[in-house]
């Protein structure tokens, strides 16, 4: 998931709701889509802005660790595929910022909040991509984990978000397959390539599990978001599903998942596995991950260096509008 620790409002019981809120909740419960002009509780709007905004930021910050290998991709075909993939991620950012705009917040406002540290992006993008297999691991594990959450979100209650998710999921499943294809080549390649593949899995396994966020079984935020259908499954459910699907894929590659406690549990029909180190997760969220500083510096620099460019285009657009106006006045 590209949104973690999204703050929601406390869950209201039906008796505490106003008649308008009750009617709104009924629509959500009936599976109706909420559209931008419909009435919605302020908490619903705010939570969605936080969640969609964080997701959008994750898509654009996520360009950086993968973009890191475009100029070093080992073949022309791999280079082309990676370019296409990273371009897709930027496109996802666009859909999501547009979905957020329907809730009354502009892309520039959201970017300001990202640049000033008031909004976050997924913790996973604060980890470095150190060898070529990392590009495989990002597609396989990171996009794989994102898909776990995004597939159910296609059914989310907010119409524009749901429609963005439908488009995004189509592309993400291609991304995951291309990641796995890289891992297959590496795992079946030379001993050095296999080492790279194992190294990538070792480094990305626990950070991928952290993507789902800490256990939320007692969280009131989660309960409200689930009632509003802007969160569909609990973090733990999704993490378990991810582990269950990913472990056999790692075995097929001949790679070892770096968890000594990993074991099939017949009774629950799923794997038992170690919790990630949540203290590391909270440090990364606080800004102390290996790449937090570089990622933010890169985004802020891109934005600041681009100011003259954006100003130039705006100035031209104003001049062109004035010229059109003058021409139409002259024609009258």
């Amino acid at each position: 998931m590209y949104a973690q620790l999204v703050k929601s409002e406390g869950l209201k019981s039906r008796e505490e709701m106003s008649p308008q809120e009750q009617a709104f909740q009924d629509r959500v419960d009936n599976g109706e889509k909420i559209e931008p002009k419909d009435w919605m509780p302020e908490g619903y709007r705010k939570t969605l802005v936080r969640q969609i905004g964080q997701h959008a930021h994750s898509e654009i910050v996520g360009q950086l660790p993968e973009g890191n290998w475009i100029t070093r991709a080992p073949t022309l075909e791999r280079k082309a595929i990676l370019l296409a993939k990273v371009q897709d991620e930027a496109g996802h950012g666009l859909y999501l910022y547009s979905a957020a705009e329907t809730l009354g917040v502009s892309r520039d406002e959201l970017l300001d909040k990202l640049h000033s540290g008031k909004m976050k992006y997924s913790s996973i993008f604060n980890y470095p991509t150190l060898n070529w297999a990392d590009i495989g691991a990002v597609g396989w594990l990171v996009d794989g984990a994102a898909i776990m959450n995004q597939v159910p979100l296609q059914r989310t209650s907010y119409g524009p978000y749901s429609r963005a998710m439908i488009r995004i999921c189509k592309e993400e499943s291609f991304h995951q397959r291309q990641g796995y294809a890289i891992m297959m080549k590496m795992a079946q390649g030379t001993p050095e390539q296999k080492d790279m593949a194992q190294d990538a899995l070792n480094r990305f396994w626990f950070p991928s599990l952290m993507m789902f966020g800490p256990s939320d079984k007692d969280s009131v935020h989660s309960a409200q978001s689930m009632a509003w259908k802007i969160k569909i499954n609990t973090n733990d459910e999704l993490r378990q599903k991810f582990v269950n699907e990913t472990v056999p894929q790692a075995k097929y590659l001949g790679l070892t998942v770096p968890d000594e406690k990993l074991e099939w549990n017949e009774e629950k029909q799923g794997y038992d596995f170690s919790e990630p180190d949540w203290s590391e997760f909270f440090e990364v969220i606080k800004g102390n991950g290996p790449c937090n500083r570089e990622r933010m510096d890169a985004r802020v620099k891109a934005w600041e260096d681009g100011e003259w460019f954006r100003d130039g285009l705006n100035a031209y657009a104003d001049k062109a509008a004035n010229r059109r106006k003058a021409a139409s006045v002259a024609a009258e």
Binding site: Q63, T71, L83, A84, L94, K301, A302, D305, R310
Partner: peptide
């Protein structure tokens, strides 16, 4: 052109530059 990826002045330009680079790599092939 691909060196811009993730560093463009605005999201639409980032996409356009990656797209241009992708076309050029295709021509190279």
């Amino acid at each position: 052109t691909s060196e811009w990826c993730g560093h463009g002045p605005v999201l639409e330009e980032d996409i356009a530059l990656a797209n241009t680079a992708l076309d050029l790599i295709g021509h190279t092939q």
